[in-house]
């Protein structure tokens, strides 16, 4: 991310933000609410319009490109080509309630990647095995618990074989006893794949277990950046200490 800015009306959420995530790296964004961490994920997923600056995925600009010293908006087609490499799991799951679990998972592989239904369904079965919900393949989302829905949402994102996975407070909407299963699934994804991950979470133990690096945000800026052991046990910045004390 280069000089990234995001304003909602007069309210500036991010201003002149710069950071880089390496391929295969797993980075957790922490910080008080309103510090802009979720906005970063939403900008990467193109759910928000970038107010300033540039985002590059593997060197390719995502929504805006530099032409000389002009900032030009990229056409939809171009944006989609790069966005296909990014997947996202939402706080509120956002499964399609009118489709079965299987239909939710194969929708994009069939209609975006052009896989055949049989091929996509076979992969969906594998993914559901991975998240422990194989027997729910033909269930409707409304018949599943929140934790199960979120695991289906993870399978749906993985079905697109993303290079980058964005996880936006994926356990915040869940009952406490359902959080464990979802995190276990994500731990396994982290272990078994080399997908680059950006996480926003309040589950600090989980963040410590899976991430290579933690960024502490405050008022739209990175105020501290460290390996998780260091960040959680021995933070430097006063603001980070306060924040961690408040949530732990």
């Amino acid at each position: 991310m280069e000089d990234v800015a995001k304003r909602f009306g007069k309210n500036t959420v991010l201003d002149g933000l710069n950071f880089t995530v390496e391929r295969g790296e797993r980075v957790t964004l922490i910080g008080p609410s309103g510090s802009g961490k979720t906005t970063i994920l939403r900008l990467l997923m193109t759910l928000e319009e970038l107010s300033g600056g540039y985002i590059y995925v593997d060197g390719d600009p995502l929504t805006y490109a530099k032409r000389g010293n002009r900032r030009v908006k990229l056409p939809n087609k171009e944006v989609t080509r790069i966005r296909k490499r990014i997947g996202m799991v939402f706080q509120q799951f956002n499964l399609f309630p009118n489709m079965t679990v299987c239909e939710n998972i194969i929708e994009a592989p069939v209609h975006v990647l052009g896989q055949s239904k049989e091929e996509a369904r076979a992969k969906a079965v594998d993914l559901l095995d991975q998240v422990g919900l194989r027997d729910k393949i033909d269930a409707h989302p409304s018949s599943l618990s929140g934790g199960q829905q979120q695991r289906v949402a993870i399978a749906r994102a993985l079905a697109m074989e993303p290079e980058i996975l964005l996880l936006d407070e994926v356990t915040s909407a869940l009952d406490p006893e359902l959080v464990g299963d979802v995190l276990e699934v994500l731990r396994e994804v982290a272990r078994e794949t080399d997908i680059t991950m950006l996480l926003v979470t309040h589950e600090m133990q989980f963040a410590q277990d899976v991430s290579h690096r933690v960024l502490m945000f405050d008022e739209g800026r990175v105020i501290e950046e460290a390996k998780p052991e260091v960040m959680f046990n021995n933070p430097e910045h006063e603001r980070t200490k306060q924040f961690l004390q408040a949530i732990l």
Binding site: I86, G87, E107, H111, V112
Partner: peptide
Amino acid sequence: EAATALSLP
């Protein structure tokens, strides 16, 4: 947003 995240046409 879910549809956008999946890049559905």
